[in-house]
Design a protein around this nucleic acid. Structure first.
Ligand code: MN
Ligand code: MN
Ligand code: ZN
Ligand code: ZN
Lengths: 144, 144
DNA sequence: TCAATAGATTAGAACGGTTCTAATGAAGGA
DNA sequence: TCCTTCATTAGAACCGTTCTAATCTATTGA
């Protein structure tokens, strides 16, 4: 597969993905989607992604990065993961899964849902229904 | 049990608790501990507790509320619960347990650890050890 | 092809929860 | 009581995030 062709495929794939989600394929959204939707899943903060874009010479404002991350989340292209106060992570893996969170480094690692099992829960509080079950395994650097 | 006696018991109990933890029983810490360590477990934010104190005519600064919550957490009198970005909850229940989190109201409800079971996990990332496993069941108001 | 329009982007201000600073006050040991 | 250490405080600073309102761009249908 030539580089040009692979680039083209990525580009058209990204545009299709945006259109399918009902989002206009703007220069900024296309560029951010390309950074996000690489083969390997990623867990990024808004500022991570903004830095990454700037480094890649993609001119985009921080406000647009936030807008885009939230729109992608709303359209189920991303998932928001909350593990520490004052900072949101966005996850390119939208499958049902869980996380290891390293409290020393701030890094997130997926736990596929078939590698963990949460028993039947007590019933949800009256008048509510379960939207999602998040398991966060908090780890720390082991003492030597 | 007379009210005076019950008050005295609470006061001396609280002071003992602080001393045991290695914290000077100051006026502010005693007052906040009394608000926190009531029979029923609570999930409060710093601003919740500060308001509660002011309402109860306890003069204490917000900075001291934050200091105290963090000190209590460090001494294992409280546990921090992270469920939404930009706001920390402090939990008077320090036993191993999990939570329902109502995303509409922001309320937390305990799930005793014997009412939920998380299977053996995949091993923690290399060089790390598990500090805690948090299960957060996110619920929302049910449609009518 | 070209308005017209709806939607997107942007810089910078504002926001809200939290932390810091450095000055004052209180606890507790000698 | 005096002294040292620790705690409290008001207010400023901080920092991630959201808002504002001006500018720009994608889309569409004439
Ligand atoms: Mn990061
Ligand atoms: Mn609250
Ligand atoms: Zn993930
Ligand atoms: Zn709890």
């Amino acid at each position: 597969m030539s580089e040009k062709f692979s680039q083209k495929r990525t580009l058209s794939g990204v545009i299709a993905k945006l259109k399918t989600a009902g989002l206009r394929p703007t220069r900024q959204r296309i560029a951010l989607a390309k950074l996000l939707f690489e083969p390997n899943d990623r867990h990024v903060t808004a500022e991570d992604l903004h830095k990454k874009a700037i480094t890649a010479s993609i001119s985009v404002s921080l406000a647009t990065v936030y807008n885009t991350l939230h729109q992608f989340t709303q359209k189920d292209l991303l998932r928001e993961v909350v593990v520490e106060p004052g900072r949101s992570y966005f996850d390119t893996n939208t499958d049902d899964h869980h996380h290891f969170f390293n409290e020393n480094t701030g890094s997130l690692e997926d736990i596929p849902s078939d590698q963990i099992f949460v028993s039947a829960l007590p019933s949800a509080p009256l008048g509510t229904k379960v939207r999602r079950v998040d398991v966060i395994v908090r780890v720390e650097e082991a003492a030597d």
